[in-house]
Design a binder for these strands. Structure first.
Lengths: 366, 366
DNA sequence: AGCATAGATGGTAGCGCTACCATTTCTTAT
DNA sequence: ATAAGAAATGGTAGCGCTACCATCTATGCT
């Protein structure tokens, strides 16, 4: 074995600088991309392809000097691994599918940002599928997402459709449902109880001696459940029954806007002039209510208390400052990502079902 | 060839219902996913795998009856194609990489929503990489994105880093730069001129006889260029020179918030009590300015005119309604997607460089 | 010294799909 | 009737990577 310095018959081509590699011309035009492949790097470094793979994916299993040579070859060739090939061979795509109503919802934004960031730090990319409010295209999207063989799927809310549930379970991909609670999650869960929020807000306003509470809500399933929780608590506390049979409600199109907040207050005032508190399904609606109240000369909170939801970055700076419900959106994103990353790395997930809770942020408006 | 009804020796197993396929047990546990593959569908339908592939990817090239049988087999088996394998074989990943400062910016949201939607309709998925304001991790992200061999890359703003430009060009992937203009795009471009917006706003306010214009801007490169355009036009129009050497400016952290709008007005008023117009780099900042003005009893627009940017969904409903700059964000998203889709389908791109322009939406605040 | 064990590396054989070209059958024109 | 072409389908050979196991060397232990 003269001329070989290492074990198993690998040619060493130490000082060749081939950039682009010599064979590239021959390959281009038929199939393939004409790009540098792992074998090109391996030849230049004088190792087997699998060793290059290990340098990239399991650095601890390669000797320091070998690793150095391989890295140098990677730099010289400008090699960028092909994750399609890697994913196919290893059944690990390092891709995450997130199903969201729309990426343009201010309430969820901080969550998706944190989710993307946490996954990114662990070598994953996130692709978003928009289901639309109401989740119309959820089932269809699940199919096209599964086609990518993602290492995890993050859902907004609970998956209700039985066919969607079945598909997800059969696909055998880790799933995290978020932003809601259920005793029967598909797999993992990071959320909180919308009913409890409604109840807590009712109790808070009851404590503030408000007796005629109204609700302005976007046509969104979870917002409606908060309103239902509020109405139930109001009845229990004897609020709703004082004058009216139920909590007056104004339903606006999702997502809630400042304009629908204004319209909501106008409508409620016309129908129920005596209301002394308005609970909104988003801070934007609440801001609209406060602006409309100001335009009408109605003092907030003196005559009408206003409560928002989301604790968006403007809530502390409105006049008066907005009392609202804070949910730790970034924490939901981080925890959801952690669940999937832990599972992917074979670790057992410490808490597969997490209730992150919520808090009422007491400011001036209520 | 007794027993064969079609051309080339394919066994027909018409009435077998195998779900999961018979071989699955044998495969599971070693390699592969144990899932239904294209060959399973092909056997059940009595055709070659390539025919199943054609039914899915080029339906017109398959006879109606064959297509029917294949689709039935797909339904019976619950087959979901593996896009990793397909992408590797065809060099078409049907994946798009979008590099954004953060997915949580209200100004860009409508664009990413439309982008995702348009691509989704054409069979593509979009993955977002967050570069951070200032694009700190842009170069690094480009590398990990190229590893996925996306069929297109969408950038926010112009790519300035030479190394990033080189990588993108070498990767030979269609690139669209967005939300800005340059005479030297990497490839394609859908945007508008930030300098022109600044100039147009200056001219608009000049027309309204405003002579002491101030600026509140987020620390964002494009916002700063709008401010620069405004300052230049102000000087040219003789505004800036009337009393001060330059347009007073307050720079807030990105992204601009209602709170920093309030702080900005407070600061500007202290330093330049005579200002009669405030131009903001986002509608949120502008809303903050108006709220602060109202708190101080300063009438808008009588004493101070306010101009925003973005024409967000609340701009028409503030009191007074906000005069702002509208950029057709959804159009940018749609056009950018169209560019890449056209290129991917081998069509020539009608307009590889598009200036979508902007408009000043005249409302009550200025 | 002799043997077991750990550490480092390599050869082979796929992962599941589609490009490419070949083959067969059916039309249409001459 | 026959050539020439179009339409439908299939066989083979990869795409670029990693799982699996084999191999070889260094190290520690009796």
């Amino acid at each position: 074995m003269i001329g070989k310095t290492r074990g198993q018959g690998v040619e060493i081509l130490d000082d060749i600088r081939a950039l682009p590699p010599a064979h590239a011309e021959g390959r281009r035009g038929r199939r393939g991309t004409g790009k540098v492949r792992i074998t090109d790097v391996a030849k230049l470094a004088g190792v087997a392809p699998i060793t290059v793979s290990r340098v990239l994916n399991a650095p601890d299993s390669v000797a320091a000097e070998t690793s150095r040579r391989v890295r140098e070859a990677i730099n010289r060739t400008g090699y960028v691994p092909n994750m399609l090939a890697g994913g196919l061979a290893s059944s690990r795509s390092h891709l995450i599918a997130a199903l969201v109503p729309t990426i343009a919802s201010p309430v969820f934004q901080a969550t998706w940002e944190a989710l993307t960031e946490t996954f990114s730090g662990a070598g994953y990319h996130v692709t978003f599928g928009q289901t639309g409010y109401g989740g119309a295209r959820e089932d269809e999207l699940i199919n096209t997402m599964i086609a990518r063989r993602p290492d995890g799927i993050v859902l907004t809310g609970i998956m209700h459709s039985p066919s969607g549930r079945r598909r997800l379970i059969e696909a055998d991909i880790p799933v995290v449902e978020t932003w809601d609670l259920t005793p029967t999650p598909i797999d993992m869960l990071v959320g909180f109880s919308h009913e409890h929020i409604g109840e807590a807000v009712a109790e808070y306003l009851h404590g503030k001696k408000r007796i005629r509470i109204a609700v302005i809500t976007a046509a969104d399933e979870r917002a409606r459940r908060r309103a239902k929780g509020l109405a139930a608590a109001a009845t229990r506390l004897g609020i709703a029954n004082t004058l009216a049979p139920a909590v007056p409600m104004f339903v606006a199109a999702a997502p809630g806007t400042l304009g629908s907040g204004r319209k909501g207050l106008t409508d409620l005032l016309a129908r129920h002039p005596g209301i002394d508190a308005v609970v909104c399904s988003s801070d934007m609606l609440a801001l609209g209510v406060m602006i409309e109240a100001q335009a009408r000369g109605i003092p907030v909170p003196e005559r009408i208390a206003v409560v928002g939801y989301g604790d968006l970055n403007f809530a502390a700076d409105t006049v008066p400052a907005l009392t609202t419900v804070n949910v730790d959106g970034p924490a939901i994103g981080r925890l959801a990502a952690r669940c999937i990353i832990d599972r992917a790395q074979g670790r057992s997930v410490a808490e597969p079902i997490v209730d992150v809770g919520f808090s009422i942020v007491k400011r001036a408006s209520a």
